[in-house]
Design a protein around this nucleic acid. Sequence first.
DNA 1: CGTTGTTTTGACACTAGTCAATGGGTGTGG
DNA 2: CCACACCCATTGACTAGTGTCAAAACAACG
Lengths: 245, 245
Amino acid sequence: MTPNPPKTSCLTCRLSDLCLPFGLQIGEIEALEIIIKIKRPLQINELLYSKDELCKSLYAVKSGSFRSYIINSEGMEQTIGFYLPGELMGLDALFQGRFSSSVDALETSSVCELPLARLTELCLQIPNLQHQLTRILSKEITTNHEQMILLGQSSAKVKVATFLLMLSKRYGALGYSNTAFNLSMRRHDIANYLGVSHETISRQLTVLGKENVITVKQRTVNIIELSLLKSIVEPCLTDSHNHND
Amino acid sequence: MTPNPPKTSCLTCRLSDLCLPFGLQIGEIEALEIIIKIKRPLQINELLYSKDELCKSLYAVKSGSFRSYIINSEGMEQTIGFYLPGELMGLDALFQGRFSSSVDALETSSVCELPLARLTELCLQIPNLQHQLTRILSKEITTNHEQMILLGQSSAKVKVATFLLMLSKRYGALGYSNTAFNLSMRRHDIANYLGVSHETISRQLTVLGKENVITVKQRTVNIIELSLLKSIVEPCLTDSHNHND
DNA sequence: CGTTGTTTTGACACTAGTCAATGGGTGTGG
DNA sequence: CCACACCCATTGACTAGTGTCAAAACAACG
């Protein structure tokens, strides 16, 4: 159609500071972007990959958002995480060579596909790339630890507040508003992710609304007072220096 | 003292199939073990490293066991994980270069210290080593995901049963008994790790005892019927091969 | 043998899950 | 373009499972 078909370029991608190219030299990024395959956008609910499938590629979110989940022994979906632009999906497959969770699109979304064989090869040639991949893996572990503590030690209210703050932070880092955004996932998915029932998510969002911390209308969230949200999450660090952050 | 001071050798270490050397050629293992530093054993409660400390080395458990934890904003310890022989500690530090949790010894224990600078260097020369490190990182992510689901979706009883099964499996893989072992951690640590109160751990262990699934006397655990324990964890896969229930 | 830390047990309170009913949105097909 | 169906979200009523508090038993240690 267009005379210049959209070409993937990490150099011009505004996500590159968050994504795999972070810290690479220009020449190294050029080598990386050669191996990236273009995939057609995925529609809502469309599967990117499913658990136990052979992992031939990793995927970076280019636009939209994704959800990873597994089906438990009772046949219920268990949401493991959400992915926003710039984030790498499929890292859990590097262990066995097969995906250990499924991923689907929460909205119309696109990805950069990184064929694993070529990526591995490139990592051998570009130590910086290997290093960045290792850092991303390590970061995921740290993030998981935080999530584990949230799941185990926090009340429903703190879980919901933390979830909103996490989205706020991630959207902010992407250059979007950190106080107004749409939830691309259902209450059910959030509930699953936070280890509570979807009714509890509804109720806690209502509570936060009544306390004038946020406004919620369907999937639209507005954070009225970020510092209030933070004080819910960290009751002990409250108030003193929460003017801006 | 001894004419031949104890020399670290991955080649003769019975853990090497579980540890970093897994999958390496003999020559590669020899290169790896040269960089390993010997540390004196740690006593119970002794700190291996603490959160925010600069990470100069990774550590593999040689004997004994360790606990990783952080202190939350209320000043409470939050246990993140337990480490048994052959397992690698400090992987969460590869992201920022600083440890994101603290680790202490649960009993008299020893470690193999892997200086990070030399390890990184070696990874460049030995692709297999890099690959194995990546696999271990990825495995940790998968394990964390399972833990997240356990924390979020399971009852106290399932949590405790899963915890015992997990220990059983890990001890079994080490060549120890998978039905009789000592808990090196306090109830409090288990509780923290599973996101319940320590009283709940006590109660659930008592329940499992009364149901003749296990016997517990202080830190000593005996699993009477592994299949019973499994049927608690996976209620839907139950029955077919569980004769008594 | 007292001190201290750990574990167990009981009583009670409360958070959050379950069940059920209702309302709002979106999409499809007549 | 409306009616219907379906999915999603909200709200209420009730309750089971756990947390909290308190006390006592037990073990480890000096």
